[in-house]
Amino acid sequence: MPSAIATVVLCFLGFASPVFALDLRELIRQVETQYHGSSAQARVSMEVATDNWRRTLEMESWSLGREHFLTRILEPPKEKGVATLKVRKEVWNYLPKVDRVIKIPPSMMGGSWMGSHITNDDLVKGSQVDEDYTFALLEETATSWRIECLPKPEAAVVWGKLVYEIEKVRKLPVRVDYYDEALQPVREIVFDEVREIGGRVLPSRMTVRPLDKPAERTLMRYHDIRFDLALTEDFFSLRTLKAR
């Protein structure tokens, strides 16, 4: 079974599952298909620090497979009720203060999501890493694998290369490095604080750092996760998005 954190991470960042055997692609495909139909609900806190401000958002999120995702801000009060819905390649934001839904235009998918170091693109494109990239085992140590992902020539992706480091025993991600098209490292995500959540052993903390601004970071902490809820696609609708 794929881990629950991986479900969330995949939704957010398009994390590809660790590879267990020689056929990396086939393994990834199997892992990816295991998510279909599986669903989750989570309580997440997101702590964003920039050069100019620092704040923490408390959120509740739902996911169904890798195509559906909904999150709603619980704290702070100023933004309570701001919600994001992702269905396939589209993203909407709901703004309770003005009671309006804004659809993110394709040209703004590279923009920041909720002020964090995660982009709208991460929500959409990240979830299909196994389809857009080719994989190669870069390094294998006693404890981990390092897998290099290069985009397929025709894939419309923003990264030039991804390198995953996966812990062998528990098959959990340790870190991901992101490279731009000039193959310069630009961002890193580190997973740690592995513990049992919702009945599974998962890294409960994920830290995203833009390498050009060393003092900035976005830190996501997963609290409660419940798996395999009776969620249907109907749930991930604009109506649900607007419901307070």
Binding site: R55, L95, G115
Partner: peptide, 14 residues
């Protein structure tokens, strides 16, 4: 509707 990132990091919208 206008939506932007405010100086305090919040989602300014009005």
């Amino acid at each position: 509707v206008f939506l932007t990132q405010a100086a305090d990091g919040s989602l300014g919208n009005d």
